[in-house]
Design a protein around this nucleic acid. Sequence first.
DNA 1: ATGTAGACTTAAGTCGACC
DNA 2: AGGTCGACTTAAGTCTACA
Lengths: 76, 76
Amino acid sequence: MSTSPSPASVLREQLARNLRAARQHAGLTQEQLAERSGLHQTYLSDIERGKRNVTLDVVERLAAALSVAPLALLAD
Amino acid sequence: MSTSPSPASVLREQLARNLRAARQHAGLTQEQLAERSGLHQTYLSDIERGKRNVTLDVVERLAAALSVAPLALLAD
DNA sequence: ATGTAGACTTAAGTCGACC
DNA sequence: AGGTCGACTTAAGTCTACA
C-alpha cells in the first residue's frame, strides 16, 4: 500500500537536499559531519534521505557544524 | 565544559514569537488553533513559551493551519 | 482563554555491526 | 564512503484536570 499516508513533509525533503548539498560543498563525509555535529552517521544518512522528522535543535546543530544559517538548510 | 547550560535554541525562540504573533494576527485562540492544527492547546502553550523542541512536521502543520509559509514561522 | 502538572504512548536520536 | 538493521533510552506529542 504505497498510498503515501503523509503529505510528504516539505521541510523534511528540503532539509534532506540542502543538508547533502551543504555537506558536500564543505567537502565533508557523513562521518566527519557526525563528529562535528555530535550526531551519528547512521542518523545523518537517514536525514539526507528524508526519512527522519528532525527537531529544531538538530537543524541548529547541523547548521552550526556546517557554518551556515539554520534557515538555509530549510529554504527552497 | 561550556558555561552555557543550553545553547538557547534560536529556532525555538523564533518559532515561539512568530507563532504567537501569527495566531493573534489571525484572531485565533490557542484552543481554536489546536482544533485547526490537530495539536493540543496545552502543547501550543508550551511552544509559544519556547519550552518545546518541535519537529519539522509540527512546524508544517502549524503553518498550514495559519495559512502562512513554514519558513515564516522560523524567520527572524 | 492561558499556563502548569503528571501520566501516558510513540517516535526521535544513540549505538554497534554489517553490506 | 554510504546505507540498513535492530535494540535501546530519552524526549516529543497526547490527554485530563485545575488554578
